[in-house]
């Protein structure tokens, strides 16, 4: 703890709670909604996707986030990247430096790969000059030299995720890189290449957040691990210890289930 305080804090999640109002009845349309509203049949169920979660991330760390499905990991990433506002609490982070990379990359299937690089790049905050300058690097890293004028709908899912990764990590723009289940797709070769690139970025002073179900990805690459379970923070610390505890819980639950 004493060591941590000397380093530069880049993300600070402070007592974040995210509450969703889930309608127990899903209206199929406006008419239906009005009818049910008049009948007062619409009730809401409160769901805490995150409940008083706090932790800090320091510069140069690689933080793994684990937890069972629906435990609030993706919600947390969306809040950190600024796409969602938490119900209470706050996240201190420079949004401009954050690059969020998810599996749904937001490519337009009808456009060519080149057009998508510019469209996607502009949306995630790259300027035209930046994209012009790094265009060749992006193509080279994604290994799509002969495919850039092809429509993305003809690409395999591996090619799409390669391109997405290449854009998000272009240049040294992303000081904080958030990867949501990205490393679990693609072939082994590209995964290694991606991990190498991430290590390179960390050397360049970047900070990385990884959400993954693959324990090995977390154990091999992370310097810190955050475990979230049913919206609550269970554990923060050394990846080995946290993963061990997580596995232990899983085994216990399976035993109870059986």
């Amino acid at each position: 703890m004493i060591v941590s305080d000397e380093r530069e804090r880049v993300i600070s999640v402070k007592d974040v709670t995210m509450e969703f109002h889930l309608s127990t009845y899903n209206p199929s349309g406006l008419k239906d909604y009005l009818i049910q509203a008049v009948k007062r049949k619409i009730e809401y169920r409160r769901l805490f996707a995150l409940y008083h979660v706090s932790f800090d991330v320091y510069k140069g760390e690689v933080v793994g986030i684990i937890g069972t499905n629906g435990s609030g990991k993706s919600t947390l990433l969306k809040i950190v990247s600024g796409a969602l506002r938490p119900t209470s609490g706050k996240v201190i982070v420079d949004r401009k430096k954050v690059q969020l990379l998810t599996l749904g990359t937001g490519f337009d299937m009808e456009l060519t790969a080149r057009e998508n690089v510019y469209l996607n790049g502009s949306i995630i905050g790259y300027s035209k000059e930046f994209l012009d300058k790094h265009y060749n690097d992006i193509v080279e890293f994604a290994e799509l030299q002969d495919f850039m004028e092809e429509k993305v709908k003809n690409f395999s899912s591996g090619m799409v995720s390669r391109l997405g990764f290449a854009i998000a990590t272009a240049g040294d723009a992303a000081e904080i890189l958030i990867l949501d289940e990205v490393l679990s797709v693609g072939d082994e070769f590209f995964r290694k290449k991606s991990l190498a690139r991430i290590k390179e970025m960390i050397h360049g002073g970047s900070t990385v957040l990884i959400v993954s179900h693959g324990m090995n990805t977390i154990l091999d690459n992370c310097s810190k691990c955050v475990w979230i379970e049913k919206g609550e923070l269970r554990m923060v610390g050394n990846p080995k210890e946290v993963c061990e505890a997580y596995r232990h819980m899983e085994e216990n639950e399976n035993a109870v289930g059986a």
């Binding site: 969020l100 998810t102 990359t105 949306i123």
Partner: peptide, 11 residues
């Protein structure tokens, strides 16, 4: 229509 882009949009 721009669901996936909305999450990443910096603007």
């Amino acid at each position: 229509d721009n669901k996936t882009l909305l999450i990443k949009a910096k603007l």
